[in-house]
Structures are given as structure tokens and as C-alpha cells.
Amino acid sequence: MTIDPDATDHGEVARPHDSRRDPAAVRTGLQRWLAGRVPDPVVGDVHIPESNGMSSETLLFDARWDGADHRLVARVAPVDSAVPVFPRYDLDAQARVMRAVADTTAVPVPHVHWSETDPSALGSPFLVMSRIDGLVPPDVMPYNFGSWVSDATDEQRATMQATAVDVLAQIHTVDPAAAGLDTPPTAGDAIRAHIAAQRGYYEWTTRTGPRSPLIERAFTWLDEHAPDDPNPAVLCWGDARIGNILFDDFRPAGVLDWELATAGAREMDLAWMIFLHRFFEDIATTAGLPGLPGFLRRDDLTDAYALRSGHAPEHLDFHTCYAAVQHAIIMLRIATRAVHYGQSEQPDDPDSMIMHRATLEAMLDGTYWKALT
């Protein structure tokens, strides 16, 4: 898959417009459902953002009950016909994680009003949460060129970076068991369990799409290099990137998207934040754009996290490569989804469906980080 830096809608690839819900029908369903939980509710217009995600669906709506107005968000699990990105969407588990984080840290997560496991109201399980205002670093086009992030000053981005690291450090103080997660004895055990789950995800993805020789080579590498980390497993956000943070005055106002939360090593979150920025930086380089090479640098994040948490991150070559492997499986699934919806054609080489193929190859060869120094 090639990257077209001049495209304005490439983020819409694999985003199935014909699977989006009818706002009027959603309003009716929410009105009926909410009436069973609060007295005499009135649901306002439902808004479905154009930038809706490719995993669970986001619905914005206002409601009034008990004389008060409430600005709300519903996250709805996708139906199978929408060719979901992930095989399972446990929104009830997400609610438990978010409540545990809210109860024990100062991380600004949305207040979860309800978690509905019965699909009858909207056709799928859903969460209803409070809505938080703020700016999100965009994915389309990437925030590291032509966005409010790239237009900010170095000092403002330094504030974003420091506070994002603080979010990670706080999340990692939460007991995974308190969040309802199974917790392996050590971080090393958690890493190996997580790799096994990712291998299962890859096998699920390839049931309806092509297999990737690169990803399969990467799994062999992971098995050979997985660290035996004796530290305790911690709660990991799972999708730890600044694109999942709402910022107000360059500080976190809301921390979103907890569907990949798990028990793991601290470095899993840190490496995900590092890699996702590098993913966008490599796009900028390909497009001949300056990007933000001084932002979210690996060594800076590592040092800041150690200072904030008291834990010196280890095995970052492994963990950033593992992040690249996880993202490769997601990219393979998204590209397969695009083929399903007729938005692209199946290439002869399935590895070309992975946008960061060259990055992953260089990480497996041990040359990626050396080339950046």
C-alpha cells in the first residue's frame, strides 16, 4: 500500500459509509432505552461524526432529565456485517477499566453513565459516557504536518509531551485486577500472553484475508527476543497515543479509547506512543515534509517516564518492534476491509498492505533506530 501525501481523504479508506446508522433511528432507540433508566428523558438530535473511527462507532447526543442537560457520547460495538477491525468488543470491560482509572488516579477519563450489554436498543452493545471538549491531534492528515500541533510552539508541544507521559505513569499505578483484568505474575509473563493473543488476532484476521510473510517472520523474532521481565505487570492503556487524548491548552482534558487495555509491561504503552509518532514521522519523510522530529523522541520519553514514575524503561528495541508488529496486523485488517468494501484491490504481495512495511523490516534487522541517530 502506498502513501499519497497529497490525498485529502485517504483516512476514509476502509471506513464503510454504508454501515453508518440512521440518526433518527438511533434517537428513537436511545429515547426508549433511556426512559428505562431515568425519569422522563428527552433525547436531542444524534450526531454521527464524519471522523468516526474504524473500530467501535461514536455517536454524539444531548439528553435532558431531572431538569438538567447532559452532553453525552455513545460508543457502539460494530456488527459483524461491518467487517470489524477486532474480533471482540467487550464494552463492559472497557467501562470497568475506565471506572478503575477514574477512581484511583487524576487521569481525565470520561464519566461512564451506563454500559449496556443488551443489543436490542441500538443493534449492538454500547457505552454511554459524558462528553469532554478538547482538541485531538489528527490522524488525517497526520498531526505532525499542517495541524494545530505542528503550528504550536516548542514550549506548547513540550507541555503536551510531559503531560502525556504523566498520563501513562498514572495509569500504570492502577491495579489491573481492580480494573477486572486477569493479571499474570510478572511483566514477562504478561508480554508472552499478549504475544499469544496477538498471534490469535492475526489468525482471525487471515481467515478472511491474506497471510503476511513479514508478520509471520516478526512473530518468530518476537518469540526469540521476548524479555524475561521480572517486574510486576501493570494496567496498560493499550492504545497509548496522543491521538487518543483530548487536549485543552495543550494539557490532557480527556483520555479516550480503552478497548485495548490489558495487563502488561509499562514499556508496552511507552513503546506504542513512541512508535505511533514514528509512524507519522516516516509518512512525513516520505512526503518530503519536515514533520516534528524533536517531538515525542524515544530517549526523551524514556527519560521523562523514568523521572516521573521511578521506573527506568528497558528492552525498548523489543517493545517498539512489538508495537510495529501489532500495528502491522491492524493495518493488514484495515486493508483487507478496504478490499471487502471495494475501496482498493487485493495486491499480489500482501506485505504491501502494511503501510510501515519498511519500518518493521528495519526494526527486525536491527537497523531502524541506528539510522535515526
Rank of each mutant, 00 (worst) to 15 (best):
P108Y: 03
P108R: 10
V109Y: 05
V109Q: 10
V109E: 00
P110A: 01
P110D: 04
P110F: 03
P110H: 02
H111P: 06
H111C: 04
H111T: 08
V112K: 03
V112S: 00
V112D: 00
V112H: 03
V112Y: 01
H113E: 00
H113R: 08
H113N: 08
H113C: 05
H113L: 01
E116Y: 03
T117S: 07
T117K: 02
T117N: 02
D118L: 02
D118Q: 01
P119G: 13
P119S: 13
S120H: 11
S120N: 12
S120F: 05
S120D: 10
A121Q: 07
A121E: 03
A121F: 12
A121R: 03
L122E: 00
L122G: 03
S124M: 05
S124T: 10
S124Y: 02
S124L: 09
P125F: 01
P125G: 13
P125M: 13
P125T: 08
P125Q: 03
F126T: 13
F126P: 10
L127I: 13
L127F: 00
L127H: 08
L127M: 07
V128E: 07
V128M: 07
V128F: 04
V128K: 14
M129L: 13
M129Y: 10
S130N: 12
S130F: 03
S130L: 07
S130R: 14
R131K: 13
R131D: 05
I132K: 14
D133R: 11
D133C: 08
D133P: 06
D133A: 10
D133T: 14
G134Q: 03
G134C: 11
G134D: 03
G134W: 02
L135C: 08
L135M: 14
L135N: 12
L135H: 11
L135A: 13
L135E: 15
V136S: 12
V136I: 13
V136Y: 09
V136W: 06
V136R: 14
P137S: 12
P137G: 13
P137E: 13
P137F: 03
P138G: 10
P138R: 03
D139R: 08
D139T: 14
D139L: 14
D139M: 07
V140T: 11
V140H: 02
M141D: 01
M141S: 06
M141L: 11
M141H: 09
P142W: 02
P142R: 15
P142L: 04
P142Q: 11
Y143D: 07
Y143S: 05
N144Y: 04
N144A: 01
F145L: 09
F145Q: 15
F145I: 14
G146L: 09
G146K: 12
G146V: 14
S147T: 13
S147C: 06
S147Q: 09
S147N: 07
S147A: 13
S147Y: 10
W148P: 09
V149E: 01
V149L: 02
